[in-house]
Simulated scan of single mutants.
Amino acid sequence: MATATVTSKGQVTIPAEVRASLGLSTGDRLEFVPLAEGKYLFIASTHTVSDLKGMVKKPSSPVSIEDMNAAIESSGAGNQF
């Protein structure tokens, strides 16, 4: 497990193996997303929205809003980590 230390100025050096895994380089930004009390997820903000194009394929048939809501409800969406 990679670890880091917070300096007196609140700075942290992200370990090289973590930077490499996330594809981070100088000037890249990180987003911190609160998950629960005392827990955060951090995400490398190195890509634009247009980079997401093509990641999700179109469904073979149209899906109704009702079907989407039912799928979300059945998967237990809203449960926190």
Rank of each mutant, 00 (worst) to 15 (best):
38 G>I: 03
65 I>W: 10
22 L>I: 11
55 M>I: 13
70 A>G: 06
37 E>D: 13
15 P>Y: 00
43 I>L: 14
61 S>E: 15
50 S>C: 02
5 T>L: 12
41 L>Y: 04
60 S>Q: 13
54 G>C: 03
2 A>P: 15
4 A>G: 08
42 F>M: 12
1 M>V: 02
71 A>I: 09
37 E>F: 08
67 D>P: 06
59 P>H: 08
29 R>Y: 00
16 A>W: 02
27 G>Q: 07
67 D>R: 14
25 S>A: 11
44 A>L: 06
35 L>S: 10
19 R>W: 02
36 A>Y: 04
73 E>F: 08
81 F>E: 13
6 V>R: 01
5 T>P: 01
5 T>G: 03
9 K>V: 01
7 T>K: 06
9 K>M: 02
25 S>I: 05
47 H>E: 12
39 K>S: 09
27 G>Y: 00
79 N>V: 13
43 I>R: 13
12 V>W: 07
6 V>Y: 00
23 G>A: 05
3 T>E: 02
79 N>E: 15
66 E>P: 04
51 D>M: 05
46 T>Y: 01
38 G>Q: 09
69 N>C: 11
78 G>V: 00
69 N>D: 13
54 G>H: 07
33 V>I: 14
36 A>V: 05
60 S>P: 08
24 L>C: 02
48 T>R: 00
7 T>F: 02
69 N>M: 14
32 F>T: 03
25 S>P: 01
35 L>H: 11
78 G>K: 12
79 N>W: 05
25 S>C: 03
26 T>A: 12
22 L>Y: 04
51 D>E: 13
79 N>G: 05
62 P>R: 03
28 D>C: 03
16 A>K: 15
81 F>H: 08
55 M>G: 02
2 A>I: 05
70 A>R: 15
48 T>H: 10
38 G>C: 08
46 T>K: 08
49 V>H: 06
61 S>F: 06
36 A>W: 04
44 A>R: 07
26 T>K: 12
5 T>K: 00
51 D>A: 12
31 E>A: 14
33 V>F: 11
42 F>A: 03
77 A>D: 01
14 I>A: 01
41 L>I: 01
9 K>S: 13
80 Q>W: 10
73 E>S: 14
13 T>H: 01
60 S>I: 06
23 G>H: 09
73 E>W: 04
77 A>C: 11
80 Q>L: 15
29 R>C: 00
54 G>F: 09
9 K>H: 10
72 I>C: 10
31 E>W: 06
1 M>Y: 03
45 S>F: 04
32 F>C: 04
46 T>V: 05
61 S>A: 15
34 P>D: 05
18 V>H: 02
75 S>P: 04
70 A>T: 14
27 G>R: 01
40 Y>M: 11
18 V>Y: 07
62 P>Q: 02
7 T>W: 07
52 L>D: 04
67 D>F: 05
59 P>T: 08
44 A>Y: 08
67 D>V: 11
15 P>V: 03
21 S>T: 10
7 T>H: 02
21 S>Y: 10
9 K>F: 08
2 A>Q: 08
45 S>N: 12
53 K>E: 09
10 G>E: 11
39 K>N: 07
30 L>D: 00
79 N>K: 15
49 V>K: 06
4 A>S: 09
49 V>I: 11
63 V>E: 00
81 F>N: 11
64 S>A: 13
19 R>Y: 03
17 E>R: 03
76 G>N: 10
49 V>W: 06
7 T>V: 04
25 S>M: 06
4 A>Y: 08
43 I>F: 06
73 E>M: 08
42 F>D: 03
